[in-house]
Computed example of a mutant assay.
Amino acid sequence: STQYLHMKAQKVKRGEFVRQGDVIGWVGMTGNTGGPHVCYRFWKNGRQVDPLREELPSAEPIVDSLQADYMAHIQPLKDQLDCIEFIDPT
């Protein structure tokens, strides 16, 4: 199972089945945070594990015929993210 914390709002309910690409919620900054983010936790057999070390089923890539439309759709969002100034706290 997965857990998502510090979200602005959730779109799905606990235990609801979701598929790749489904919107599950929106990034927020609840609690004592340094900025908007989502805290993602992955649980297996009741224990929190590193999701990057787990063997997960592979997903089919976006078909070639949809890639151009997809890239055009996400470009404004990517531009916004790319313009966020990072200030090194050190």
Results as ranks from 00 to 15, higher is better:
T2A: 03
H6M: 02
K8W: 04
A9H: 14
A9Q: 15
K11I: 06
K13M: 04
R14W: 00
R14N: 04
G15P: 01
Q20L: 08
G21P: 02
D22V: 07
I24W: 15
I24D: 07
I24L: 12
G25N: 08
G25I: 04
W26Q: 12
G28A: 07
M29C: 02
T30A: 03
T30P: 00
G31H: 10
G35P: 05
P36D: 12
V38G: 03
K44C: 03
N45M: 09
R47C: 02
R47A: 08
R47H: 13
V49E: 15
V49A: 13
P51D: 01
P51K: 06
P51M: 10
L52D: 02
L52T: 06
R53C: 04
E54V: 14
E55Y: 10
E55N: 13
L56R: 06
P57F: 15
S58N: 15
A59M: 14
A59N: 10
E60P: 03
P61Y: 12
V63I: 04
V63R: 05
V63L: 01
S65E: 15
L66F: 14
L66P: 00
D69R: 04
Y70P: 00
M71G: 01
M71D: 11
M71V: 10
A72G: 00
I74T: 01
I74M: 04
Q75L: 12
L77D: 02
K78E: 08
K78T: 06
F86A: 00
I87A: 04
I87V: 13
D88A: 08
